[in-house]
Design a binder for these strands. Structure first.
Lengths: 196, 196, 196, 196
DNA sequence: GATGAATGAGTTTTCATTCAT
DNA sequence: GATGAATGAAAACTCATTCAT
């Protein structure tokens, strides 16, 4: 407890610096300085720069996946799901947007193909869980029969939209945009049941 | 006809190599070897590695934008538009998938912020053109009132979906997936007009 | 005492190698080898090859200027001055001739115009100090009225003569030559007061 | 006669460009452009960049030596010699100062040790010729007994002084400075004969 | 003879990683 | 355990020289 967890400090410093400069342009020196430790110390916790990067990405991506999973558990109707998702994505965008932009935008194939594979697998897991949820809704007649994977993909597009317009287009009305996307998707998923 | 256009050969080699390793891991040497020219020769055509990369990306991205624009011009109903888009995206995926994956996946901010800006501007242009088209359809009552930018974003997601499932998930039934996405989007855009 | 001052070792190696090959032909590699350190180590102490060269030159030139200044301080007659100068220049030629030949021979404009300017400024400072001394002697009637700057220039020619005949003509009777030059200069400065 | 001697044009272009940038920083390309010929053409006349440089230097240095020799031939007293020398050096400084600064300032050891040797040999030749002249004057009692080589060296310092103050100190009163130097040297060489 | 597109050897500099303290 | 001085492999880029036209 006296030491405020050196590994957390290093991880956090890495996050900031990798985000600012990208993988290749980031120097271990800068991370060490930002973390307030010696260069050598980092190597007590990781094997290499790549290892550090991978650990950082996995931590972040897992957090987002975790939020998605929680959102699913809480939601017993498609409308409730979109409500919670909207709320949670906005929360992430406001609290951690910068830190998590890797989740959506970085092509990691150049850094580590293993990481790339992990990302795809993680994405697949998310999509599977979403598919299960969608199947339930389809079974219950809440939504019409749609391709569950594609629907899951489109649901995840809500994250993409949010990050893109926040980071690259610097727009503030993200909530409005996400509402509009949910509107289209909801209609697309429910079809004319929406009228009933 | 005597010269088989050395610049085209270099550009093409650059495309292959950059795609395989990403910007930073790519060595000019390797591009030169693949193009069958000396290292120095590349510098007759570009100023730097970055310049080469930028030129390559712009060429590719412009091509995809061009296809999108053509698709819009040909299409006088939303259904026709999705038909043509499906056809054209499938064509690109079959002919140039590998070469064009940058269009969707690479985060270029680490390479050149100027390029990144160009990409965002290009994307905005595409979205504006799509928005105009969607406005027309809304005016004509072909689709219901939706947020045009968000709808445009979702239409472009068809490219993203195609590239993602082809490249990272190695799936072959891309056409089916795209059909399923178009199904959802079409319903989402038309609402219960779909019944009429 | 434990550390035999790595910077001194590098500076000394740089001196030898730059002298042997000139600025452009000198490779950092060779300096590193001669200093018995890794190439990277040099860059812990300087920013660039040019920086290393500039530091080396300034160190050497400053040393020679320092000797000149000391010589002036010690000397209360023109004859004493020439005596001391002769003695000190011979000392430098014997101990550091090779290391200091830059002082006289190198045209540095191609390397760094800033350095060139520093050299000219340094030279000017030396000449000003010499001029002050000569003025004193003129006031006291020790020497006749001469153009102080030109006289100062000629006094510095004693260094040039020494280095030239030692380095390029490999002559050993430097002392004799310097005596002869002083003889001419002294007569030139005193005119017929020499007879008195 | 139709072709205005391509070699002269190349040599002249080389002179300008080498002077502006120094040997290493000069590119053959730039010389070719300035001469208005193709790069390949230069290699019809010289074997290499070094060869071109050597030829240029020798041409220039020979010209200065030639002027010195002529001055000696014209002069039958030490005073006349200094008069003519003053006149001729001023002429060179006004017409060709820039072109000839190599003669005095460049350390050529880094470029070609052969050239360096040629320069030293040329310098020696000049000094020998000057020594012969000085011997004559000594024999005739025009000047007192001085070390002829050293005196010759000091006479050549008139060139050095001129180039230095013109090029590095940008001074305009070169003539005055040279007069002052000649004044000192003449007194130094004649001793109290000056009174006679 | 003249050209200039093509070449690739050669050099500076960076920075992840190590290891003596 | 923590450090940071030392390392050297690696890569972009330059430019003298060549040679097919």
């Amino acid at each position: 407890m006296t030491k405020p967890n050196k590994w957390q400090i290093i991880l956090s410093a890495a996050n900031e610096v990798f985000l600012e400069h990208g993988y290749e342009k980031t120097k271990m020196e800068e991370i060490a300085v930002k973390a307030g430790v010696g260069k050598g110390t980092i190597y007590e916790y990781v094997d290499s720069k790549e290892d550090l990067f991978v650990q950082m990405i996995k931590t972040n991506v897992s957090y987002v996946s975790h939020v998605l999973m929680e959102t699913i558990e809480q939601s017993h109707s498609i409308e409730a799901f979109f409500d919670h998702l909207l709320h949670n994505v906005l929360f992430i965008l406001n609290k951690h947007c910068e830190k998590l932009s890797f989740v959506v935008n970085e092509d990691l194939s150049g850094v580590s193909s293993q990481l790339q594979e992990w990302m795809v697998a993680n994405q697949e897991k998310n999509m599977n869980r979403l598919s299960v949820m969608l199947h339930e809704f389809m079974d219950r007649g809440e939504i019409r029969n749609v391709h569950p994977e594609v629907a899951a993909w489109l649901i995840q597009d809500i994250f993409r939209l949010g990050f893109y317009f926040r980071i690259f287009r610097k727009q503030d009305n993200i909530e409005e945009l996400m509402h509009a996307e949910i509107d289209i998707l909801l209609k697309g998923l429910k079809g004319c049941q929406a009228l009933r």
